[in-house]
């Protein structure tokens, strides 16, 4: 049995809210800037009549945009030298670095321009595994997105690999 990379106080945080609940109004300009930066010119993001013809109530947004709409702007003084923010919410692990392992998304209902979306992220899992390059920790951060009608519109699971 190798030594644990997960300190007991981090294990105790499983299920804890890491972010939110925070509510943001989905903005037409921000969503369209995102779509154009991706190079996705799907008319359902830009043209109300095209969106309605495709069965949407009004213009919708690129599927994963909802997570970027939630980013809380922070002062420049909180930037680290790598450009990331010091937010202090990271889960403490006995590892050198955390890498993105992947994402899983469920899209349950459309997100529309003007929706008020509330996001809450939890630490869903923290497991130590053994791989060919030695032990690593798989961290799952699950975010739920709920609209103004209290309907869950999307759920994301971001997988972090720490070693």
């Amino acid at each position: 049995m190798s030594t644990s990379l997960i300190p007991p106080e981090s294990l105790a945080r499983i299920g804890e809210i890491l972010y939110g609940p925070i509510t943001v109004t989905i903005n037409e300009r921000e969503a369209q800037r995102y779509a154009l930066a991706v190079g996705d010119e799907n008319p359902i993001y830009f043209d109300e009549s095209a969106a309605k013809a495709a069965g949407y109530k009004t213009m919708t947004v690129p599927p994963t945009f909802v997570t970027h709409a939630m980013v809380i702007p922070k002062p420049l003084s909180t930037l680290r030298t790598d450009g990331l923010y010091r937010d202090g919410t990271g889960v403490r692990l006995e590892v050198a670095r955390m890498m993105f392992g992947g994402e899983e998304w469920d899209f349950l209902e459309p997100v529309y321009i003007g929706d008020q979306i509330t996001a809450t992220a939890r630490l869903a899992a923290l497991d130590q595994k053994s791989g060919s390059k030695g032990p690593f920790v798989r961290q799952v951060r699950e975010t739920t997105f709920v609209n103004q009608e209290m309907t869950t519109v999307a759920r994301s699971r971001q997988i972090g690999i720490a070693r």
């Binding site: 890498m99 993105f100 992947g102 899983e104 998304w105 469920d106 899209f107």
Partner: peptide, 9 residues
């Protein structure tokens, strides 16, 4: 309608 997407980096 896209219902799920799952990717690995």
């Amino acid at each position: 309608r896209l219902l799920n997407i799952t990717w690995q980096n």
